[in-house]
């Protein structure tokens, strides 16, 4: 066991965990932040995407120890003062979710995408969602929501 400390959603956290603990396990089981989901064993679905030092990464494909000292943001950290993030609002507005399983990862990927590429078109959004799988296949409205949010945030 060893102590792993980081900042999650602006709060300093620290816990004694096994070196093999994945970041997603640290977030869900140790911190109890279950907004971040696990949808596969093969690093392909993107349900687990969080931001580490401002970059979207798959938290199931990273050890907690690799995030030592990092600033981590999960879907719970997006809303500010009770006000949903524009991407969250757009997902609600445009019905960008069905069962909701893929949604946290989709939203975290979208926030990172809009930050990197403020001028989005549909083709780019679809290409950039390569690593996020929606089992309900609701891509149409997900893409619509992301485009709407990106317009709103411009």
């Amino acid at each position: 066991m060893s102590v792993v400390a980081m900042t999650v959603n602006g709060k300093s956290v620290s816990a004694d965990v096994e070196p093999r603990t994945l970041l997603v396990t640290y977030i869900r089981d140790t911190l109890g932040l279950t907004g971040t989901h696990i949808g596969c064993d093969t690093s392909q679905c993107g349900a687990c995407v969080v931001h580490v030092d401002g970059k979207a990464v798959k938290s199931c494909t990273m050890l907690a120890a690799q995030a030592e000292g990092a600033e981590v943001t999960t879907v719970e950290g997006l809303a500010q003062d009770g006000e949903l993030h524009p991407v969250q609002k757009a997902f609600r507005e445009h019905h960008g979710l069905q069962c909701g399983y893929c949604t946290p990862g989709m939203i975290m990927t979208a926030v990172d995408l809009i930050r990197r590429k403020p001028d989005l078109d549909e083709e780019t959004v679809r290409e950039q969602l390569e690593g996020n799988i929606c089992r309900c296949t609701g891509y149409h409205n997900i893409v619509k929501a992301i485009l709407a949010a990106s317009n709103e945030m411009r």
């Binding site: 690093s43 970059k55 979207a56 990464v57 494909t61 990273m62 990927t109 950039q128 996020n132």
Partner: peptide, 9 residues
Amino acid sequence: IGDPAVRHM
């Protein structure tokens, strides 16, 4: 290569 999250790591 892969997807944006893979490319970040």
